[in-house]
Design a protein around this nucleic acid. Sequence first.
DNA 1: AAAAACACGTGAGGC
DNA 2: TGCCTCACGTGTTTT
Lengths: 184, 184
Amino acid sequence: MEDSNEYQWYWETNRFYNAEELIGSLSLDNTLSAYVDPSAADGGQPSSGASRNIVSERNRRQKLNDRLYALRAIVPNITKMDKASIVKDSINYIQELQEQEERIQGEIAQLEYSRACENQADQTSLCKKNKRTVHEQQHLSSYVSGGAGSSASPPIQVIEVGHYLFLSSFFCHLIPFHSYDNKT
Amino acid sequence: MEDSNEYQWYWETNRFYNAEELIGSLSLDNTLSAYVDPSAADGGQPSSGASRNIVSERNRRQKLNDRLYALRAIVPNITKMDKASIVKDSINYIQELQEQEERIQGEIAQLEYSRACENQADQTSLCKKNKRTVHEQQHLSSYVSGGAGSSASPPIQVIEVGHYLFLSSFFCHLIPFHSYDNKT
DNA sequence: AAAAACACGTGAGGC
DNA sequence: TGCCTCACGTGTTTT
C-alpha cells in the first residue's frame, strides 16, 4: 500500500532499496526458499551467494530502467510511458531524424554544388562530370566493411582517405577541389 | 539444454513459443507449482487466471525484446548486445544526431547567405574567407573520440581532402584509421 | 472487474 | 572460479 506511492514516482526519482534490501539479505536466504546456497556453509555471513545475486539483479534492472528513462527524456514525442512504447517512439524518432538528415544533406549539397558551379562561371558540363568522378573515386581505395558480429549492418563501403576512413554514403556529394582557389 | 540453442538465436529471429505455451497452459497450473489459482475452482478450464497471466507476460517480454532488437538494427554503432548497452548507444546516437541536425541547419543558412553574397558582390573575397575556415577545420579532425558518444561539435565548414572538398557535416562518422581494426 | 504493466526473486548459462 | 546477463513465473499495482 505504501509502495504504490513509491511506484508512482519511479520514473521521476532515483529510488533506493534501503529497507527492503536489509531485511531481504538477513532473512530471505533460508526461510521461505527451498534453495540453499552451497557457499552458505562457510559461515554466518549474511551477504553470501544468492542474496548477492538478488541485489546485483536489482542494480541491473535499475540501470536499464534509468537508461530507458533517459531515452524517454531526449525523445520529444512520447505517447505512452510504457517501456515498449518508449522504445517504439524512439525508433520512429530516430528514423525520421535519419531521413530528415539525409534530405537536408542533399539540400546542402545542392546549394554547395550550385555555388561551386557558379564559381566555375563558364560551363555547367563540369558539374555532371563531377558526379562521375565520385564513382571513379570509390574504387580508388575501397574496403568492404566486414562488421565483426554485426549482421544487420547495411552494405556500406568504407573509403580510405589519408589517415581516415569514411563511409561511402557520405560521398554522395563531392565537390572538386580546383573549383575553389588554390591553397596558398 | 536444448534451450541454449534457442537463446542463441533470440535476437536474430522472431521466436514462437508454440510448443511450450501449449504444455504450459495445460499442465503447469496444478502440477509443480504450490500456488493454486483461486479462480480455478470454478471449473476445469485450463486457461484460467494465472496461466493467462503467464502467456500475457511472455508476449509483453517478447514485444519489448523485439523493439529493442529493432532499435539495435537502426543504430549504426552498437558496441555490445546488452539491453542496457543498446539503449545507451541509442541515446548517444540520438544526441549526436540531434546536435548534428542543428549544426547542419546553421550551415544551410550560411551557405545560402554566402551564395547570395556571391551573386551580387565580388566572389574572390568570399572564397578566401572560405579557405580560412577550411584551415581551421583541418586541425580539428581528431574529434570522433573512439567508441561511444561525446562527439564534439565544432563549427562546420568546408574541408579539403585531396582534390575534393567536403562539407564537414559529413564527417560525423569519421573513423580514425588506427582505431578501425582494433575496435570491437 | 479484467487486462495491462511492473518489480521481484530465482535458476541457467556464458565468459 | 565468480560475475553478469537473461528468461521465466509470480504477486502487485495501475488503467
